[in-house]
Design a protein around this nucleic acid. Structure first.
Lengths: 190, 190
DNA sequence: ATAATTTCTTGATATTTGTCAAGATGAAAT
DNA sequence: ATTTCATCTTGACAAATATCAAGAAATTAT
């Protein structure tokens, strides 16, 4: 099974092989260099991508500060789901933190799958439901955990990321300041 | 258009009338009295409901505290989506805060719609995508707003709720303590 | 290699939010 | 009507987190 096949089955669920090949064939390899934008806030999001190598940052600039919503690493997908599904202006900006290689499908091709693969809408549903569950976990972490606990949990599951991206991006996506993370780290050396 | 028809179209999207009638026919009116549980954490969630009148609280008890995830009011739906869709044990407990009347569909009937209404899985996808967007907004509020701002925003949009449910439930779902809300309120009288 | 820039850490301090305890208020039960 | 219980508010205090500023370390550009 290729990487892309693996990503698709793990997010969308199991498909028979013919359908999987149909789906895979509509994805294209896309290379973006460090700093390049895949999407700007306010534009329509016309694609969905899986990260093959590299890193993407999903964020939005508000008058007060820049809010990083997520950093997509190998195997993650990346899109502005609301914009991609409903065609509304995107909330998020997506930018490559380093040179990044993607498997990308355009919205047009994505919609085409619906005609080619009978069970597609059901798979889509499962995909979005998985996304929903991830966000639900995150909400729960904000309702029930301290900054320190949120940091710990994230660190355990994403150790490598801390060697790759500036700390303030991670801090932002966890809802705290970089200084807070620094202090948590210091405390834990003792 | 009946209330239920309205709820369905607003969450799932527009359906032709025959399909809408098919869908509506599978919902049953359910009455629960104050304090009754619709779901317990750890059980499988076997139904999805729309609140016609009354109030439901969605929460989970952790060793340290009780975390209220949401309070469903008239027109809201209520279910443990992860459990309902994937059949995993429910994270949430759902309890009626007051006598409540629901439009409820069982999981079996819900799945039956897939066979009766061709576009059903696509509608489901849209439904879950809308749920996703709501959670995304909430995540954003935790990443970018103070407790006071989160309270303000919620209060503006849900004034009536404050006359109906204990403050500590609302505080919990906003990720703060009831004392914090009390103080925010006091400050705003000045 | 050096300079320039960004990132990370640290300290001092301020602000926000939480905790605990007590009293006040209001609702429900007897 | 009285009691009981839960809720809400308030104060005093503590803890968590943010802010600001400075310096150290690391990275990037020249």
């Amino acid at each position: 099974m290729t990487e892309l096949e693996h990503y698709i089955t793990s997010y969308f669920g199991v498909v028979n092989n013919d359908d999987l090949q149909t789906i895979v064939s509509l994805f294209k390899v896309e290379k973006v260099t460090k700093g390049m934008f895949l999407l700007h806030t306010g534009n329509r999001c016309e694609q969905l991508s899986f990260v093959q190598t590299g890193l993407l940052r999903i964020f939005v600039s508000t008058p007060e500060k820049e809010v990083t919503q997520w950093i997509s690493t190998k195997g993650n997908f990346s899109t502005d789901l609301a914009s991609f599904v409903f065609g509304v202006p995107a909330r998020w900006t997506i930018q490559a933190l380093i040179d990044t290689q993607l498997y990308t499908i355009s919205k047009a091709d994505y919609q085409k799958i619906g005609e080619l693969v009978p069970s597609w809408h059901e798979l889509e549903k499962l995909f979005i439901a998985r996304c929903f569950v991830m966000l639900e976990d995150r909400i729960f972490s904000h309702l029930s955990m301290s900054a320190e606990e949120r940091y710990q949990l994230f660190f355990e599951n994403n150790k490598a990321l801390f060697q790759q991206v500036p700390l303030h991006y991670i801090a932002s996506m966890l809802g705290m300041t970089p200084e807070t993370i620094s202090r948590i780290r210091k405390k834990q050396l003792l």
